[in-house]
Every structure is written in structure tokens, then in C-alpha cells.
């Protein structure tokens, strides 16, 4: 079976006109522009099988979004090859568009003043879907994502979590083979995030959609994707099953405020980070010890005033992976 996505030595170099100082300088710049070149992506190759769920992560400015743009056909590469569902994206953007569904967490694709149903009807025409098949599919998706009660409400009256569920349904209405999710859980509360992750995973398992996801939330990656590609400085630094990366991803940061200046807490898989007195920051490998076990132990010590549980920031995770690879 052909892979859903195949990139070979994909490169992108941006060219900027150098800004010169002063009025004379900017005039000279107009007449004889001097250019600087910036290599955003320097030869990226990977394959993704149909039905795979893959996270593409990396710090801001690492070339991650440039790669994804080239993959969708909204940016032409400077060199290399790509095939997405059998299309060359930048040459066959329109034809590829029928086969992919896109969700941008920070940008609504729905008409904010109109009922959700109206935006869906518009998308039927945009993707040339026959009416009866579309109605059946919309019915299925609406049931699976539990948005039946929202269909007749204007989008600007939905909560962020409700809106995001509708956005995902909107992206799936034309039965795309590839689903592309950019920060699908950004800004959502914990419950809404969990629901969205379940929906995406179940949807892909039920219909065999290939999923490409980018996120700054390690939990999105851990709970949705089977494989992680890490891009840094325009190159792939790591391409592994999620399982292999659990030691980087399966971590939590627990911060405890206590009456005592120090807390004595020694558990397997728990390391202590430097901190001020009365504050204890613990990094927990959740494969070895569960978060609730750590908190229970801390509460047993007494004098705990505050507890926060966080995921380590994605930048830090990527940095550690990078450091582990290049000791």
C-alpha cells in the first residue's frame, strides 16, 4: 500500500531584502537590493502510512509549520519532492483539497454570526458533496461528536470547547482521507481537552483517517498519536513511536507550597528541581510513579498550602530530546 504522505529531501529557503540604514540606504536598497537567505527547512524526509496518527513537534521557528505548509500545498518548496495522497501538493492544491480536512485551533472556519448548520451547508457546496450522502454523514458525525443540540445556535454563542467540536465535524464533513490538526486543544479547559482527544482518536480508528497533529500540549501527542516527528533548526532530529518517547513526554511537574522550608519526598521516578525555600518542584516520571501517589505522600507530610500540577513545556521537552541525541 502506498504511504499517505511521502517527503523526500524537502527544502525551503526564504530570501529577504536586507534593510539598510537611513533614507539614502533605503533608496539604494530599492535600486540594488541585497538579499540574505534563511534556510527554514533543510532537507526533510519521512513517510506516513495511511491510517497512522503522527505528531509533528518542534520549538517555534524550527521549520515545523513551513514543512506542514508545503505538505498542504500552500507553500512551494525550494527543492525536494513530496507526495500527499498521490498528489504533488503545490502543483495540485485544489485536487488535494478535496481529500484533506483541516482544523486550526486559533482560527475559526465557521461563520460566527450564523447557526452551525448554515456553515455546514456552505461546506457541502464548497466540497461538492451530494445532498443525501452528505446528510447521512453529517448525521453520523453530529452523533459521534455530540453536537446535535448545537446545530441551530449561532457560533458566537458556543463555548470554546463546543465550537472546537463543531470545527472538527466541519473538517470531516467531506470525508477527507487526511486530517490535519493545528493546536486543536489550545485554550480549552481540561475536560474539553480530554473529550477532543478521545473524539479525534476514535474517529481516526473508526474510519482509518491519517492524522497529522501539531501541538504545544504533550498530552495531545501522548493520547492521540502513535508516532512523533521532532523538527528542530529545519531538520528532523527524531522520528520514533510515541511509546519510545514516553520517558520525555510522560512527565508531570508538581509544585508544592509548604509551611516547612523543605519537604523530604523520595519516590522512584521523582526528581527534585532547584527552587526557593517553602516551594518544592518535583518532576515525575509517570511511568514509574503516579501523580496522585506523589500528592498523597506530600499531604501525609502535613503543612501543604498549595499544589499545582503541570505538563512540562514543549520547548523543554524538545530541548531534552535534542540534548539526549547530541550529548
Amino acid at each position: 500500500m502506498n504511504p499517505a504522505v511521502r517527503l523526500k529531501e524537502l527544502r525551503k529557503t526564504y530570501r529577504f531584502a536586507k534593510a539598510r540604514r537611513g533614507l539614502l540606504g533605503s533608496l539604494a536598497g530599492l535600486l540594488h537590493p541585497q538579499f540574505t537567505h534563511l534556510e527554514a527547512v533543510g532537507g526533510v524526509s519521512f513517510e506516513i502510512a495511511a491510517g497512522e496518527r503522527v505528531a509533528i513537534i518542534g520549538p517555534n521557528g524550527a521549520g515545523k509549520s513551513t514543512t506542514l505548509k508545503m505538505l498542504c500545498g500552500v507553500l512551494e518548496p525550494s527543492g525536494g519532492e513530496a507526495s500527499v495522497l498521490g498528489f504533488t501538493p503545490w502543483k495540485e492544491r485544489r485536487r488535494l483539497a478535496y481529500e484533506i480536512g483541516v482544523v486550526f485551533g486559533q482560527r475559526s472556519q465557521l461563520w460566527t454570526e450564523l447557526p452551525v448548520r448554515d456553515s455546514f451547508a456552505l461546506l457541502r457546496r464548497v466540497y461538492d458533496q451530494p445532498e443525501d450522502a452528505f446528510a447521512r454523514r453529517q448525521g453520523d458525525l453530529v452523533e459521534r461528536f455530540g453536537v446535535g443540540a448545537l446545530l441551530d445556535q449561532p457560533v458566537n454563542r458556543l463555548s470554546l470547547g463546543q465550537r472546537m467540536r463543531c470545527e472538527i465535524v466541519a473538517a470531516l464533513l467531506h470525508a477527507p482521507k487526511l486530517l490535519f490538526l493545528d493546536e486543536p486543544t489550545i485554550g480549552l479547559d481540561v475536560t474539553a481537552k480530554a473529550a477532543i482527544r478521545d473524539f479525534i482518536r476514535e474517529q481516526s480508528q473508526a474510519e482509518g483517517q491519517t492524522v497529522l497533529l501539531t501541538s504545544h500540549d504533550t498530552r495531545d501527542i501522548e493520547l492521540v498519536c502513535e508516532r512523533v516527528i521532532v523538527i528542530n533548526a529545519g531538520r528532523i532530529v527524531l522520528d520514533e513511536p510515541t511509546e519510545q518517547l514516553r520517558r520525555y513526554i510522560a512527565r508531570k511537574l508538581v509544585t508544592l507550597q509548604s509551611a516547612a522550608p523543605q519537604l523530604a519526598l523520595d519516590l522512584p521516578g521523582v526528581t527534585r528541581r532547584p527552587s526557593e525555600p517553602h516551594t518544592t518542584i518535583l518532576e515525575i516520571d509517570t511511568r514509574a510513579t503516579r501523580v496522585d501517589a506523589v500528592i498523597a505522600r506530600a499531604l501525609a507530610l502535613g503543612g501543604i498550602e498549595d499544589v499545582t500540577v503541570e505538563d512540562p513545556p514543549m520547548e523543554e521537552v524538545v530541548h531534552e530530546i535534542y540534548a539526549a541525541l547530541h550529548p
Binding site: D118, L122, P154
Partner: peptide, 18 residues
């Protein structure tokens, strides 16, 4: 034309909603 017609109706409805 069908897609443009749908966009036209959506634009009209959005204006009337405000």
C-alpha cells in the same frame, strides 16, 4: 456557482443576523 451561491446566502444571512 453552487459554492458561490451558498457563500452569497451565508453573507446575506450574516448581515441580517446583525
Amino acid at each position: 456557482a453552487g459554492a458561490a451561491g451558498a457563500a452569497y446566502r451565508a453573507g446575506l444571512a450574516a448581515a441580517l443576523a446583525q
